[in-house]
Simulated assay, not measured.
Amino acid sequence: MTETRIGYSTSQIALHWIIAALVLFQLFFGESMTTVVDAAEDGAAVSSADQALGSAHYWIGISTLALVLIRLLMRVVSGAPEPAESGPGWMRIAARGSHGLFYLLLLLTPIVGLLAFYIGDPWGDIHSLNKPVFVVLISVHAVAALFHQYWLRDGTLKRMLSPGR
């Protein structure tokens, strides 16, 4: 008899939260990279704080890309639990679509950022457009998780907080 997974593995959960923390760092401190690039184009000096944050933005972007690739590989190898059966069908479709968009953004944003860094515009402008998309998607994701936890009470949030088999 085959066991059905009810939650994610410890590694999948850890990667989820590490990637989330890295993305939030990028959203809050990513403007320093713009400051550094603009200063370099203008031949102007940049503060040591902006230089450090710009460098961090670069390396955290590369780290995020690597961790997302690992997470996708783990998903292919280990799978993922079935979505909760509560709620209307459109919610499962929306969840699948939003997760797909997350993975797409998590892969393309660092790649486009690298293109922006090494090639320049229009890649920098395209890279910047992803920030508001991430903000909206993260907000919807968080509200949906809380809705599942406190309204539907279907255990969806628990699956990203504690490992299941």
Rank of each mutant, 00 (worst) to 15 (best):
M1I: 09
T2M: 07
T2Y: 06
R5K: 14
R5D: 10
Y8E: 10
I19F: 04
I19C: 07
I19R: 03
A20C: 08
L22A: 09
L22I: 12
F25A: 10
M33S: 09
T34R: 11
V36Y: 02
V36K: 01
A39N: 11
A40N: 05
A40I: 00
A40E: 10
E41C: 00
G43D: 09
A44T: 05
V46F: 07
V46C: 00
D50I: 11
G54Q: 00
S55E: 04
A56G: 08
W59P: 05
I60N: 12
A66Q: 05
L67G: 09
L67S: 08
R71G: 07
R71Q: 08
R71L: 06
L72E: 01
L72G: 13
R75H: 10
E82L: 12
P83Y: 11
G89Y: 06
W90R: 04
I93G: 02
A94F: 13
R96V: 06
S98V: 09
G100K: 12
L101I: 13
L101G: 06
F102T: 02
F102Y: 12
L104D: 04
L105T: 01
L105R: 01
L107K: 00
L107V: 15
V112Y: 07
L114P: 03
L115F: 15
A116C: 04
Y118P: 10
Y118E: 12
I119M: 10
D121R: 11
P122I: 04
W123Y: 15
G124H: 01
H127P: 07
H127A: 02
L129W: 14
N130Q: 07
V136W: 04
L137E: 05
L137H: 05
H141K: 08
H141V: 02
A142E: 01
A144H: 08
A144M: 14
L146E: 03
L146S: 06
L146N: 04
F147Y: 15
F147T: 08
H148Y: 12
H148Q: 09
Q149N: 12
Q149T: 03
Y150E: 06
W151F: 12
W151M: 14
W151Q: 13
R153N: 14
R153Y: 12
D154C: 03
L157K: 13
K158G: 06
S162A: 07
S162H: 08
P163W: 13
G164S: 07
R165C: 00
